[in-house]
Amino acid sequence: MQKKVILIVGPTGSGKTDLSIKMAQRFNGECINADATQIFNGLNLATNKITPSEQVGILHHLLSTIDLNENYSIKMYQQEGRKILAQLPDKTELHQYLSERVLRLTERGLFAEIEAAYKYCNYDSAKQSMKIIGCPEIIRYLKGELSYDATLATMVQTNKIYAKKTNNMI
């Protein structure tokens, strides 16, 4: 599957930053800064740098990464940008795999298995075995707290978080 990159270009003050946030939210993406002045750590007002609260949880790359005393070249930017782009498709592939994995497990009877285990544990979700990925989400579904689709989405998100933690430990 070929990965897509959305480039947002335009003159200063044309709304590129706001659009990048909307696009990242819509496509579960991340932002790579291409403003040569915003690469420097500091001068946030002078460069009209996006604030952490304006980032609304969207990961931003190449933003405030270089000390004001350092020089930075286009070659350095290209090298870093290419490295980040390579990491993003890898991450996208992992997320796609995790989504498909949750669906495969569901098709094989994950909901029924967890429901039976929950019953066997006398409906005690505090049991250690009921903390395994998928159990808390499906128990919430069984209690009517989550819809089926929300349960699947939550399980995918939990798997992504766990995969990231595991990757960081390795």
Rank of each mutant, 00 (worst) to 15 (best):
K160P: 01
T154N: 12
S147I: 04
F111V: 15
K143Q: 15
I58C: 03
I8Y: 01
G42W: 04
S129I: 12
F27S: 11
A163Y: 02
Q38M: 12
L62H: 02
V56T: 11
N48D: 10
S129C: 14
M23A: 13
N44R: 14
T37W: 07
I8K: 04
A24L: 03
Q78V: 06
K49V: 03
T158D: 10
G109Q: 02
I58A: 03
D35Q: 07
T158C: 07
Y118F: 15
L45H: 09
F40Y: 15
I170N: 14
E80R: 07
K143E: 15
T12V: 07
N48E: 10
M130F: 03
N44D: 13
C135G: 09
G42S: 10
R26W: 00
I114D: 08
P89F: 02
G42N: 11
R82M: 02
G15T: 02
R140Q: 12
K143V: 04
Q157Y: 06
G109N: 03
G29L: 02
T51A: 07
I74F: 01
L62F: 01
L19H: 03
L7Y: 10
Q25F: 06
Y72R: 00
A86F: 00
N33M: 04
A150E: 14
K131D: 09
P11L: 13
K4C: 10
I138G: 03
M130E: 12
G144N: 04
L110Y: 03
T51Y: 00
T51V: 01
T51L: 06
E93P: 03
N71L: 07
D149C: 05
I84P: 01
Q87P: 00
N33H: 05
I114T: 09
E115F: 01
T154L: 11
K22L: 10
T166F: 10
V9G: 15
I6M: 10
M130R: 11
R140F: 00
D35Y: 01
K91H: 06
I32N: 09
C121A: 15
T37S: 14
M155H: 01
S147W: 02
N168E: 13
Q79D: 06
E113G: 09
Q157A: 14
Q79L: 02
E137F: 00
L94P: 07
Y123E: 13
I8L: 10
A116F: 02
I50V: 09
K75N: 03
F27L: 13
A34P: 02
